[in-house]
């Protein structure tokens, strides 16, 4: 992911002025943040081990007064919300954000709200695909007429399901082309869609499958 990002930044005429790593559970970003401030970089892209490390990093970044345009490749919407005002302005990319403006998503969110009320955890790029996958599997089982693995596998690319992310169809080497969203965290913790990349081709995944 980071190698691709680096290549892409070079391709569009940007320059990577620094690249730093900490161990997965590292929590002291002091030296790295000082280097970042020294580097006079125009923007920042990070990729941590999801969840809590994002919060630690963002707290320390904001504490040091870093307000560069900041894209995070590993933060989910719920975590961003738990960071409060610190998360404002962060860009994230995902195949699902709650801010998707579609009737399917609105129905989904309303139903979730009704079922879980205040206990609702923010649906995100990790949970929504699981939700849709269960329905996709159901459709494949119905088409195959049973749960026999080989038959279900054969049926999978032929069925589709309409979920919060719209129509999902695993018709490309058993992978689904997904619309990717560029979101930006707002002051109230919600994520606003600022860019939409329609049906991104998953590329070569399992060439032996159709």
């Amino acid at each position: 992911m980071l190698a691709f990002t680096k290549e892409y930044i070079g391709k569009i005429g940007g320059k990577v002025v620094g690249e730093e790593y900490l161990p997965m559970d590292g929590s002291d970003w002091t030296a790295i943040i000082s280097k970042l401030k020294d580097s006079k970089a125009d923007a920042l892209i990070t990729s941590t081990a999801g969840g809590a490390p994002n919060v630690t990093l963002t707290k320390q970044l904001r504490g040091a007064g870093v307000s560069l345009p900041y894209a995070n490749l590993a933060v989910d919407e719920g975590t961003a919300k738990s960071m409060g005002a610190d998360a404002e302005g962060i860009y994230l990319s995902a195949s699902y954000v709650t801010g998707i403006d579609s009737p399917e998503n609105k129905t989904f969110l309303a139903a979730m709200e009704k079922k879980f009320g205040s206990g609702l955890k923010t649906p995100n790029d990790l949970s929504v695909p699981q939700y849709e996958a269960v329905y996709l599997y159901k459709a494949a089982v119905e088409k195959a007429g049973g749960t026999e693995t080989a038959k279900v596998l054969e049926a999978l690319p032929q069925v589709s399901v309409t979920g919060p992310r719209g129509v999902i169809k695993m018709d490309k080497q058993h992978h689904a082309a997904l619309t990717m969203y560029l979101g930006q965290v707002q002051g109230d913790g919600s994520v606003k869609v600022v860019g939409t990349f329609k049906d991104v081709d998953p590329g070569e995944q399992c060439p032996k499958l159709k």
């Binding site: 002091t30 401030k37 969840g51 809590a52 919060v55 320390q60 904001r62 504490g63 040091a64 007064g65 719920g78 975590t79 738990s82 960071m83 409060g84």
Partner: peptide
């Protein structure tokens, strides 16, 4: 299990001897 939100004890930066430094630190 979730990460909890806590209010900032002290936010912002201060200018000290020519560098902009985290006030909280």
């Amino acid at each position: 299990r979730d990460v909890q939100m806590t209010p900032n004890l002290f936010s912002g930066t201060v200018e000290i001897l020519g560098v902009d430094y985290s006030a909280y630190r």
